[in-house]
Design a protein around this nucleic acid. Structure first.
Lengths: 292, 292
DNA sequence: TTTTTTCTGTTAGAATATTTTCAGAGCTAA
DNA sequence: TTAGCTCTGAAAATATTCTAACAGAAAAAA
């Protein structure tokens, strides 16, 4: 029985074919003929399609080891699910015909590919180490991004700021970066973002920070920012897109996954911080000034 | 009607999404969630999966133009037949067995699901219309985001700023938003971001902008910001994540796809702008000040 | 606030699907 | 041929699904 349950319904029919009666074989052939669609509608329809009576259908279902027709049909449904529920497959199948031509679909295809390839390159252990590093409040965090990546840096910063204390965002203007260096030492972590075209001042900054003992976590693209040589942990994320611009989707996803992980590690303290934040928002009605 | 019959059921749902009630949207999301398998079982099962009552299912089926639930389901069956009977490449599930345990994989799974589901709800024609709207330099663009979405707004703004002129970013402080309204009229477009928890001042702002004839394009989550009532185009993007935080991955992808589309439409003028920008960077060595 | 409208689930019963029963048809073997 | 058997579908019985009507809840408008 357990063995039987692992077979597809089609296989069960073929296996049991010898033991089926004449009329049941008619039904079996009809079912296999356009499997599994032929099995989707009601018992009445299935029966008449095979030109047999409904009791024949029930009897065969039971012979195949099902409790009844609904049970049989549920198995068919599960098979269909298995067959077409893979995310990528689903996407391919259920978007309009000719979907490959529309930029939205081309982009999505590429984005998913980027995600897969980026993930394949990430060592879960390293991910966990980074998560632990960022979670530990023994270190101050400094976040720096370039032209393209500043929004990502912002995003990460905004969330981390809620999760823990001592998170700093380096401004957009590199000429002021040296000032930040004054406060950075061996116990500090620099989270840097740098994708092509790599920014020279970031390289220099990383070099100096490294020489001061700052631990660097770098988010870069598949080719790797030169700043990687000074970094303790490097995430190489795919950014290719059918566009004149690169895609940050994979990077964002990893950042969000990191946030989820960090959040979990620090939940004890974070929960209180989040509640406090809610209270602050409510009390000051910071976001109500404009309401009529 | 004849036109409608050529759409897939998923497309019909997507097209009618705006006209659906709150509970019906729950159902629609549940159906699209694991489409089309989610629609295969009985009306009772479909209803309880979406946690709505069976009459709601019937009502929605009728709203979508079907005679009743059986008619609706027959359409699904036909679709499956169309899709499954043509030999399509079968994709393996990209993630290994047992991978479900690490947060990174769980997150990736969900992210891809979000992408698929978000895409399933986007009408390519509407996407193209929005792309055309943003591409046209007859309109000024104003971009506004909330607490959570400000980074996305920034990201979109940064890129659009390169692509075209007359793009403005509303500041983070809502109390200054009324000032911007002075410059906004019938020829202007407001690109707004609002996900849960929806921000009341944004709603008010959208209302006033709408009353001044401003066209609004809204990026929101699957439940829909209330500001949607004033918007000409609404993108409902999935944000669920195995995390205390929501995920912006799907939203970012659509933004990037839009940028790619806009970029293509405006390439003539954009090319010049980009070259000019490169020159500016080089000449001023804005980004070299810090180099050793 | 009060009124009106819209929405949504409960209920009941009609429609349909599924299963059981059973009689007769067809086959086989003596 | 005929007794004994299996097989099959008609029809009844049962279970389930589906729909219509309604009333209370929620939301919108006045």
């Amino acid at each position: 029985m357990t063995n039987q349950e692992k077979q597809t319904v089609a296989e069960r029919i073929r296996t049991s074919f010898e033991s089926l009666t004449h009329t049941e074989r008619l039904l079996a052939n009809s079912m296999l003929d356009n499997y599994p669609i032929s099995c989707l509608s009601s018992i009445t329809a299935v029966a008449s399609a095979a030109q047999v009576s409904t009791p024949t259908v029930v009897r065969m279902a039971k012979k195949l080891g099902f409790k009844g027709f609904p049970d049989f049909q549920a198995a068919i449904h599960n098979e269909i699910e298995e067959q077409i529920s893979s995310p990528v497959t689903k996407f391919k199948r259920w978007n309009k015909a000719g979907s490959d031509t529309h930029i939205l679909n081309r982009f999505a295809d590429k984005a998913i590919e980027n995600l897969n390839q980026s993930l394949a390159q990430i060592d879960p252990d390293e991910f966990d180490k980074v998560s632990a590093m960022i979670s530990s409040d023994k270190h101050s965090l400094h976040i720096v991004g370039g032209r393209i990546t500043s929004s990502l840096a912002d995003y990460f910063f905004n969330h981390l700021q809620v999760i823990r204390s001592n998170v700093y965002r380096l401004g957009a203007n590199p000429s002021r970066w040296p000032h930040y260096l004054l406060n950075m030492g061996e116990n500090d972590i620099l989270i840097a973002f740098d994708v092509r075209r790599y920014e020279h001042n970031l390289l220099t900054f990383a070099k100096i920070a490294h020489s001061r003992g700052v631990k660097i976590i770098l988010f870069t693209d598949q080719w790797g920012s030169p700043a990687g040589q000074y970094a303790q942990h490097v995430f190489n994320l795919r950014i290719e897109a059918p566009s004149a611009w690169d895609s940050s989707v994979a990077c964002l996803m990893v950042l969000e996954a990191l946030l989820a992980s960090i959040q979990t590690e620090t939940w004890e303290t974070t929960e209180a911080r989040m509640n406090e934040l809610e209270t602050l928002f409510d009390e000051t009605k910071l976001f109500k000034k404009f309401s009529g």
